[in-house]
Amino acid sequence: MTLRVRLNGRDLLLDVDPQRRLLDVLRDELRLTGSKEGCGEGECGACTVLLDGEPVCSCLVPAGQVDGSEIMTVEGLGDGELLSAVQDALVRFGGTQCGICTPGIAVCATAALRREPDASAERLRELLAGNLCRCTGYQLVIDALCAAARPAAGPSGEGAP
């Protein structure tokens, strides 16, 4: 089956088995290995991509379903070597450790902050609840996202008690 997609801002025609998981098409066919597989069943969020602006687990999406859609992966968030504000904040505020969850978090948070630019730290915790991170305990991730959302306010989005 030939799919027509817009991937990270580029129009593409893809000849693939419509049953293949979008994650495999991205990783194996297109060599976009930024999307990771942590579970293969929609639990960890490491494979998160944006499908028409909505975060989805690419391990659950059959390729046939994305025909005519716009897809954004972690590789498309920045501008060449330049990191996006969300990516930059994740690096600067300690929001990435082993990094395996980070692409999914960066993608999901980008969509979340686009939709709810004023999201509170607490709200961000809810919006990110589909992206598991075993390293950070989440505090520095949330701090980083608050900083990305409100560059002037600094990282301490949750404030001191």
């Binding site: 290995t33 930024g34 992966t73 972690v74 590789e75 990191l83 990516q87 994740l90 990094g99 960066a106």
Partner: peptide, 23 residues
């Protein structure tokens, strides 16, 4: 001090290669 981690940019941009990513 707390400089950005040396592997940070590669990790947030998806460029870092884990074993399953190695060509």
């Amino acid at each position: 001090r707390s400089p950005p981690r040396v592997d940070g940019a590669a990790k947030v941009s998806g460029r870092a290669l884990y074993v399953d990513d190695l060509p």
